[in-house]
Nucleic acid binder design. Structure first.
Lengths: 137, 137
DNA sequence: AACAGTCTCATACTAAAGTACCAAATCTAT
DNA sequence: ATAGATTTGGTACTTTAGTATGAGACTGTT
């Protein structure tokens, strides 16, 4: 967790910088104490929100599809489309109708998907695809 | 977004309260300006983190299984177990081996699961189960 | 233009999934 | 203890899924 140390170090620095700035402003009389404190409060609130967001993103399984993984596996555009339809629970015949091609074509694509994902069944392919983060949701 | 308005109202109030408190402390000379500002910064940082956490939680699809849904659907304990195995990508034969029963039994269970989830195929059953939040992940 | 890759489709299989129907054993709660 | 639900298992059958193989059409690339 180097990032944690880094972030808290930066925060400490930010606080020190603000202290310097605020005391200087107060001495010079440009700003009122209320204004400075409000600004600091808002600033640190925003920083808190931002940092929490960053941390959350790392912990949560991203719902985004990992395009790099798709390329790494070697799935073609059409094969990936078929995979998505499979994962949605459609049969080969239904996928064929939805994509306006023959069932034979879908079978070919499915076989290729299974090969590339090293799966014996479509359900296993779906599971593996999920683990590889190449499926939305 | 009533919550948003509420939260920001509370924040504004908190800032005002802090201003009052800090000016009072400064006048009475109990605290230094640095100490007050640091405290406020830390406080608002924490508030920011907390609020972001709250908001995030609402957006994320809960990974918990919805036991009520399982009951509502009428899935028995064993049927649910089979559903989980199905969703993991196992074949009927594999599930039979894993649960130490015959393949016939699994077929019966699977048929019942499909009926209760109103699905034509196991992939569709998995998809529907996912939507009903009765699958972990 | 030639080539690799993709997409399409077909045939002929084998394997797996799913349905229908039945029935015995086992729990479970009243 | 008995009724109702659950679990288990079987047979026989239909439907999907998946494999193997081949091949034409259509990219984009060098």
């Amino acid at each position: 967790m180097k990032k944690t140390i880094l972030i808290f170090g930066m925060l400490a620095l930010a606080i020190l910088a603000l202290l310097q700035l605020s005391s200087y402003s107060l001495i010079s009389g440009d700003l009122t104490i209320e204004f400075v404190i409000s600004g600091i409060a808002i600033l640190f609130f925003i920083i808190g929100v931002f940092i929490q967001k960053k941390f959350k993103k790392e912990n949560i399984v991203s719902k985004e599809v990992d395009q790099k993984q798709i390329n790494a596996i070697g799935l073609s555009k059409r094969e990936y489309e078929v995979l998505l339809e499979m994962a949605s629970g459609y049969s080969n015949k239904e996928i064929a109708e939805r994509l306006f091609v023959s069932e034979s074509t879908i079978k070919t694509h499915v076989s290729n998907v299974l090969l590339k994902l090293d799966a014996k069944r479509r359900t296993q392919a779906i599971q593996k695809a999920k683990e590889l983060h190449i499926l939305p949701i």
